[in-house]
Design a protein around this nucleic acid. Structure first.
Lengths: 358, 358
DNA sequence: CTGTTAGCGCTTTCAG
DNA sequence: CTGAAAGCGCTAACAG
């Protein structure tokens, strides 16, 4: 019986579905018997409202189902509560999701929302994206890259509070957050040393990017901390892909005195190293220990044995970038947006992910 | 010499850096000696403007560096040129990037921009996200999931044009776009058959999701098309991970009459199947051919030999969803947003990616 | 073809 | 503590 629509049901249905005419601040002012100013005040949590007036207003808001029109607020206050998020490339790396998730969560917590543009390495699009966002009066901008590198973002970005994510300008003129590659290289090597290895190979990348240089430095620093000699024969550079890892490992294995452990620039190279080690009939980790970098779950967790690796702090960088931006916004409320001291250049630690390859 | 700042340079520098006072439509009207209405008309490409007036106005716009205040436009027109993009989960899958890239590119082409919220499976957040977006007067909504599945999105979504991406409602009441799993299963199996295989194994997933059921149907349909018998011993179900693929493959290999080719539910399972095949001393593809699904580059391209697989059309679905939304918006300009016929439930083909495992 | 005018819904003085 | 009034910048009638 209850599924047969009655006339009343139909009417209700109709009312629910018909486009609700927008209820404004005026409506609730009238309903509550106060002025619009007062309504605005309770909406914005201003102090000077008597408790009972406030209660009345809130009741009216509830009763009429009031929802603010954000465009009107933005027009009036020049603040949109939107953060512009610009990425150079979003598709190829699974890390993009972590960065965005971190940024989005922090933004939501701060009452902001992300406006996203992916520029696919196109400088013109990048410029246009920033302009569009400024036109929309975003409160601030995040400029994110998919791997750690120096950048020269559009000058126009400097007009509003901005932070760089996973990248930096050479002159450190914009706040930035990147992974601590040096420490990552150091910790990776240190783990190997502490597990008793004395001869440790390093299969590095050939691309002249910060990660390449800094992880190498970390490797060297760790050796030095433990008074282990640096042997340049133990360091090989190859393309950062499985094939490179394979080739590099083969070279190390062919050494008169091969290493008992190897630090690979990233998990993909480690994947190739696995193949080389197996092919030569060695076992991981008993004969050769392997540590990677990046913690690409798809690879690291699925390799056998599971790959021990250093994790890039993408999620954390996303959070940091937004939170720092939020803090800039707060201070600029009063000080009319000016950079007091030099912008922070933050490095976030890469946590160790222990699996079974060391 | 040229690096020593002169007085003039300083002044220019100062003028460039000082916050430019906003130039409005009024300013350019005055500058061009016309009324604001006229300026608005040329801005919006209205027909009734004489060429020379238009030229003057454009000159003024150029000269004063006019940029519209989007909030004012939105307030007036009730259209924000923003598309709300809601995802259930953005971080775990590399596919997310492709979906977003497709959506974002299509949106940009249509003069729209994406407002992103990732809800991490939280229904409350989901509801709040939709409300926020409606408050911001988004033109429409995309609701995207990271794997193909049925959903029950917040009712409130129906108030504005919305499309489902990689998901659908059971009652087909919202437009949706998903991968054509059936065809994918069919084509995968067909490839194996055409390469001369008669006994073809299928290592399926155990999760009762559309992909599981439909790829199976495709597998059966292909066998039938080629008059090959269906042997239920050749179909095994396991968890959709490398271990599951490994176990499933072992079962098939232990059959009295094992298959000469195997279709794996996804690339991760294929990865496990590779191990099993190798462990038994068989070669891929000479002894056993393998085809996967998903085309997870990180796995498929890096396995040896490269894994032939069916690609999920994430990028294309992103584009389709936005383009369809855009077309809805156009028609609703006139017809005051109502669904004339039943909303389309589109399936996009999964292209074959040939590598070396078949 | 074009200028003028009236708001869109909200915040914020400014007087009480 | 509260109401009234003045716009934020833009678009869309409405008269010319």
């Amino acid at each position: 019986m209850e599924s047969i629509p009655t006339g009343i049901d139909s009417i209700i249905y109709f009312r629910v579905m018909s486009k609700p005419t927008k209820v404004t601040i005026q409506d609730i002012a009238r309903f509550a018997g106060v002025g619009v100013g007062t309504v605005s005040r309770v909406l914005n949590g201003h102090p000077n409202v008597s408790p009972e007036t406030e209660a009345n207003v809130r009741k009216a808001i509830e009763a009429l189902g009031y929802r603010p029109v954000v465009a009107a607020q933005t027009l009036r206050t020049r603040r949109s509560n939107v953060i512009g998020f610009i990425t150079d490339e979003i598709a190829t790396s699974p890390h993009a999701g972590q960065i965005i998730r971190g940024a989005q969560e922090a933004a939501w917590k701060g009452g902001k929302i992300l406006l996203l543009v992916n520029t696919q390495w196109d400088p013109e699009l990048e410029q246009a994206a920033v302009e569009t966002m400024i036109d929309r009066q975003v409160d601030g901008l995040i400029y994110a890259t998919m791997y750690h590198r120096p950048v020269t973002p559009p000058e126009i970005m400097r007009q509003i509070p901005s932070v760089l994510l996973d990248c930096f300008t050479e002159d450190a003129s914009l706040p930035s957050v990147v992974p601590d590659e040096f420490n990552g290289g150091y910790e990776a090597t240190k783990l190997l040393i502490e597990r008793g290895h004395q001869r440790i190979g390093f299969i590095n990348n050939t691309d002249p990017i910060p990660a390449q240089r800094l992880r190498m430095k970390g490797y060297c620093a760790a050796l030095e901390s433990y008074d282990l000699p640096f042997d340049e024969a133990l360091v090989v550079e190859r393309k950062s892909e499985p094939k490179g890892g394979y080739d590099g490992m083969m070279v190390l294995l062919d050494l008169p005195d091969p290493p008992s452990a190897v630090f690979c620039f990233n998990d993909r190279m480690a994947m190739g190293a696995y193949d080389a080690i197996r092919q030569r009939g060695f076992r991981i980790p008993q004969d050769i220990a392997v540590i990677g970098f990046d913690n690409q779950e798809l690879i690291a967790a699925n390799l056998y044995p599971g790959l021990t690796t250093m994790q890039l702090p993408h999620y954390e960088m996303g959070i940091w970038a937004v939170e720092y931006l939020l803090s800039m916004l707060e201070t600029s409320e009063k000080d009319d947006f000016k950079q007091e001291c030099s912008p922070p250049q933050v490095q976030l630690k890469c946590p160790l992910v222990l699996r079974d390859s060391v």
